[in-house]
């Protein structure tokens, strides 16, 4: 599996081992930076907001006693497993009706409500320690406090693992910016790599190396957490 990585390293020294692709990319293609920061921005915002929404929702799904809970869960499960192309069309129509096409919000909002985070958090919360929640409820009646001090504190590992997965997925999204955005300056790095031949010089390989780095860093930091997160 790792040879792929080394080839990434190898292949950007092209044209007789020169730095030309790198200088072309770093100094000659200012739009690259815009798209890089766009990617980072989208990924960060989506991760934070999605966690803010998915954690309470999963908590509610686990603890609340309510009719139709199973149905909600099933809907989310099916939504999560749907191919992206299928969910994109409803998303597009929803965004179009609200006039959010070609804005940053148009990318962020549908991703926040993706089912992935909710389902994963729900699976983790199944083996949450209920006694602790009960104990905390005696002290406070605020759900928010219980959530922050008990639930989040207990599930740090899982939340980090989920966050990294969401980050990786958002960093890698291609279809949404391609279809929802028209303005080049709002698009992200995946689109840049897709259209790398439009730019001058061999910018493709250096761009994909830079594209790898943030996720790779996260992976190296959290690889054990990630493994635990999947196994649970």
């Amino acid at each position: 599996m790792l040879p792929i990585l080394s080839t990434v390293g190898m292949s950007f020294w092209q044209e007789k081992l020169s730095l030309k692709p790198w200088t072309d990319l770093l100094f000659d293609t200012p739009i690259f930076y815009r798209m890089f920061w766009n990617s980072v921005f989208y990924a960060f915002v989506i991760v934070i907001l999605e966690l803010c929404i998915a954690v309470p929702c999963a908590f509610g799904l686990v603890t609340a006693k309510m009719r139709g809970k199973k149905i909600i869960f099933m809907i989310y499960l099916i939504l999560m497993m749907m191919p992206l192309q299928v969910t994109l069309l409803p998303n597009y129509i929803g965004l179009r009706d609200m006039g959010l096409i070609n804005t940053r919000m148009g990318i962020i909002l549908p991703m926040i409500f993706s089912a992935f985070g909710i389902i994963i958090m729900h699976q983790y919360m199944m083996n949450l320690d209920e006694a602790q929640i009960e104990a905390a409820r005696l002290e406070t009646s605020s759900v928010l406090k219980v959530l922050i001090y008990v639930v989040v504190a207990q599930m740090k590992t899982c939340i980090i693992a989920t966050a990294v997965f969401i980050f990786a997925e958002c960093f890698n999204m291609l279809e949404q910016p391609m279809l929802f955005l028209k303005d080049e300056r709002l698009k992200n790095l995946t689109v840049f790599i897709m259209n790398a031949s439009d730019y001058e010089g061999k910018v493709l390989f250096p761009a994909s190396v830079i594209f790898l780095i943030p996720v790779l860093i996260l992976y190296l930091y959290f690889n054990e957490t990630l493994e635990k997160g999947i196994k649970l």
Binding site: I53, T63, I72, Y76, L109, I118, V143
Partner: peptide, 19 residues
Amino acid sequence: CCICMLPAIMGTLIFSLIP
């Protein structure tokens, strides 16, 4: 606890189910 679920469900309704 039910209210906790609300934002997520609203979002899903607006962006996925109703469309």
